[in-house]
């Protein structure tokens, strides 16, 4: 059946009207959705800023020279500080990196360069599972595996716990970074008559070094604030540590110890320690991200 010209015009007008109405509706819905997203974003930022503000307000009064140089003193004694905890955290993080770094990178290399099929799938899945294991469970594991046989809380066991926690982050990010290196770079290395492991370590890995360093720093920032896995591994120590086989103090555990004590003096110091820890983690995070951004901007691998 043929449509007449007026039929067509009428249909067209109706369609125009419909479209105009829909457009109005869409504009309103769009505006509302935009508003909702804005509110949600702001609410998400509130905790971050209020926590920072709170810690700053509570922590600043407790900060003084003694805090960075002195050892913990009995309540009421002057010159009390957390020098041993600051150094202890540094040592624990270093130990953790010494364990987690080579291990994590090795897994990353396996997954990116050698892993094929089912075996690689299982490894990848296990690494992902490991990253979701609560850190206190890792602490319990190290307690059973190292502390109990050695009959001793120790800096070493604390380092192992932190190392295990670093593995998944480092493994997965080094895998992703290695995969970013195009295949033809590997082939170029192989075509020079170099064995595969040398190509991977000296050419491919070297090309993604800046990224991997960033991943390591982020992993360090993450474990530096861990308390739970240290509670029954590194434990705590009021004095300078006495070798890696002995308990060692750390900022998070010291914060915990002081925070649950009944003394105002100790509470003040716990707040100061919290401030130091947060500033450290923020600074490391920001630093690593800035370096990474600058490094990735100019280079096209």
């Amino acid at each position: 059946m043929a449509m007449t010209a007026s039929d067509r015009a009428r249909k067209n007008r109706a369609l125009q009207k419909f479209i105009a109405k829909r457009y109005q509706r869409r504009k309103i819905v769009n505006g509302l959705a935009y508003l909702a997203i804005g509110i949600a974003t702001l609410t998400a930022l509130v905790p971050l800023f209020s926590v920072s503000e709170f810690i700053l307000r509570k922590g600043l009064p407790g900060l003084n020279w003694d805090f960075f140089t002195g050892l913990p003193q009995p309540v009421g004694e002057p010159g009390s500080g957390m020098a041993n905890s600051i150094v202890g955290t540094a040592i624990l993080v270093l130990l953790g990196s010494l364990i987690g770094l080579p291990w994590g990178i090795a897994i990353g290399i396996y997954l990116a360069e050698y892993g094929r099929g089912r075996a690689a799938g299982i490894v990848r899945f296990s690494v992902d599972m490991l990253s979701s294991v609560p850190s206190i469970i890792v602490g319990l594991f190290v307690y059973t595996a190292i502390v109990v046989p050695m009959k001793q809380f120790s800096a070493f066991s604390g380092g192992v716990a932190l190392g295990i926690l670093m593995i998944p982050t480092i493994a997965r990010s080094s895998e992703e970074l290695l995969k970013l290196v195009p295949q033809h770079i590997r082939e170029a290395g192989l075509a020079l008559g170099l064995p595969r492991w040398k190509v991977v370590l000296q050419i491919v890995l070297r090309g993604s070094m800046s990224g991997i360093i960033t991943a390591v720093i982020l992993a360090i920032a993450r474990v530096a604030g861990e308390t739970a896995p240290l509670l029954f591994t590194a434990f705590n120590n009021r004095f300078w540590h006495d070798g890696l086989g002995q308990p060692i103090s750390s900022l998070p555990v010291q914060i915990y110890t002081y925070a649950i004590s009944p003394y105002d003096e100790w509470h003040r110091q716990a707040w100061a320690a919290a401030l130091v820890l947060v500033v450290f983690v923020f600074a490391v995070n920001l630093g690593a991200r800035t370096i990474f951004r600058n490094k990735t901007k100019g280079s096209h691998v």
Binding site: I185, E187, A188, A191, G193, I203
Partner: peptide, 30 residues
């Protein structure tokens, strides 16, 4: 194959110098 590739070199379709290496190191890396 490693020994073979020392005797039979290859140049690829797309220029692919090693990204993290200097000109000098690119040449002598092998």
């Amino acid at each position: 194959p490693v020994a073979i590739r020392r005797r039979i070199g290859m140049v690829f379709q797309k220029p692919n110098p090693f990204p993290s290496l200097s000109i000098f190191d690119n040449v002598c890396v092998g």
